[in-house]
Nucleic acid binder design. Structure first.
Lengths: 334, 334
DNA sequence: CTGAAAGCGCTAACAC
DNA sequence: GTGTTAGCGCTTTCAG
């Protein structure tokens, strides 16, 4: 390993001067600069970041905390964050399936200048400990009650609202709502949007049209969608389905096809999440797209801002959601 | 920030003793240990990893180098690596779309004890520089000619062979082979397996049955599969399709359906990669599964071994591949 | 069993 | 313009 000392010795200068030159801090002559730069290059000198970090107290790396589900479902979160970091010469560490305690420890260990936190359920009060630690925090997409925290949210309510409204505009009034784990924040929000839109259009919501199911795994989700449609299609009448998760919608599609009916002819189906299969199944699924990349970018930018400018204004952003209308939607059959 | 000094002062001991106790290095009395541990706990002391790294020369973090495509397609690579690292108290940094030069610099910066490298095309000779740097290396899945490098490969040849053999066993002799970018190592290997299996069964391979196409993007891939089947189905006769990528197979499936024919009744289709849509499309696609998680685990284990034991034996592993037979395969129609 | 001291590689305040 | 020096927080050798 070649250190700053080696360069200093070889160029017959002090390490201070060498450091100044290498970091372009000024106070050196053109010639010494040239000499040092040449020698550094010849020696293949590369600064040791650990040492620099110890001295400066900054690591120029941030961590992203997320769970397995998120990683599998939305790997683009990683790339979007990474791209922003790269332009600022920051690095990205991955922390999977962690909890607040561990986040707190990680921050104290001093290897991160900040943390991007996704999808951790935060008990009120728990946040206290974290925010006290050195290091900045930005929460992504979660359900954070506290106001004094940076947060990039997604407007799931609006997503549910939009999807329902679209269905209503197509003439549908009986819309089966198949929901994910009801404890989940986004499920509740989507439902709120669904109900709001119904209400706005003077449509009375009907309890039997709201279906819950086992959504503990992707397969379970598919089954939920499948069963929901299969069981209810004959008895309850509905002409459209809104699922809180694309995988649920896949199951619904299967059920329709097994019944010998057509999507979108007999039934319109809209999902949520725009997962990768949705583009490839037949019919290509209309769905609500969650702006994951945008969330990643914004989160990273806010975090970087806080770190570098020590800008301590709390920022909250709520990201709008868009519908992707592909092939699974049509007007209500006569 | 509470440092070892604070603990030393408060317990009226030297930092040396405190350090020894905190790291369980022995040479202290039971009482002092208790006292120090209590104070450390009271103070919420957490060791600064940057300082430790500077001293020990070890960071206990490794980097994984991969490109966007890989990340999107196989996020489980990340989780499998992460899981292994976690049990050894190592951290994981993500490096996206990098090249060998950058890897070399990263290693020199001293923030990694080692690198897991996926999918970088290595020119002969380039490797030299890298291996000379401090830090261990394990290559994942790539096409590395050099022998003196740790490598966890995937036996794509066997995958192509297996898939073809399975088709032949089902009675197919005319198997359309739709291939990805022919410069890609795995494409070549799969093709080799295809040809080998054909030959082994005394089947003469036919040039018109090998189709290339634009595979620069997922959409292009789908189109390739679509066009390949659409254009050739009437003129060239074949009863099965082997695609080097699931997305190509999706396109093929669509073409068949547009022709009013059935998979697997009229045509059997097998893909490669077991991408996430394959489970959800209709029919559920039979495909060849790449053991990504296993590759990640093994790679991480080898790397960790090299780092901690300074075990310098070069390890090469070639991972077997498995077929997943779902719904897109049947015997050759009479 | 404990402590003093060196030093990892770097930055930065200060003196010259 | 340049050098001396202190010190970031820790581990480890060595002396006692």
């Amino acid at each position: 390993m070649v250190t700053i000392k080696d360069i200093a010795r070889s160029s017959r200068l002090s390490i201070a001067t060498v450091s100044r030159i290498l970091n372009k801090k000024g106070n050196y002559s053109k010639e010494t600069e040239k000499k040092v730069l040449r020698i550094a290059k010849d020696f293949g000198y590369i600064a040791n970041l650990t040492a620099r970090s110890l001295k400066t107290g900054l690591t120029r790396t941030i961590g992203i905390v997320l769970n397995d589900f998120y990683l599998q479902q939305y790997p683009s979160l990683i790339s979007s964050v990474f791209d922003v970091l790269r332009t600022h010469d920051f690095s990205l560490e991955i922390i999977l399936n962690s909890n607040l305690n561990e986040c707190s420890r990680l921050l104290s260990e001093g290897r991160f200048d900040g943390l991007l936190i996704t999808d951790i359920n935060v008990e009120p009060g728990e946040l206290r400990e974290l925010t006290e630690r050195a290091g900045d925090l930005v929460f992504l997409g979660g359900d954070i009650e506290r106001e004094d925290v940076n947060l990039v949210e997604i407007d799931y309510f609006q997503g549910g609202y939009l999807a329902t409204k679209h269905l209503i505009n197509l003439g549908h009034t009986d819309i089966l709502f198949i929901e994910d784990d009801t404890n989940l924040f986004f499920t509740q929000e989507i439902k709120r949007g669904y109900l709001f839109s119904l209400d706005e259009n003077g449509i009375q919501y009907k309890e039997p049209l709201i279906i819950r199911g086992d959504t503990s795994s992707p397969t379970a989700r598919e089954m939920t969608g499948f069963n929901a449609v299969k069981r209810n299609f004959r008895e309850t009448s509905f002409s459209a389905v809104l699922a809180t998760d694309d995988k649920i919608a896949y199951g619904a599609l299967k059920a329709v096809s097994e019944e010998g009916l057509k999507v979108p002819g007999n039934l319109s189906v809209i999902g949520f999440g725009n997962m990768s299969p949705s583009e490839y199944i037949v019919p290509r699924l209309s769905t609500v797209e969650i702006p994951i990349s945008q969330m990643g970018e914004l989160g990273a930018e806010i975090l970087l801002n806080n770190i570098t400018r020590k800008d301590s204004i709390i920022k909250r952003v709520k990201l709008k959601i868009q519908m992707i209308d592909r092939e699974s939607l049509s007007s209500k059959p006569a």
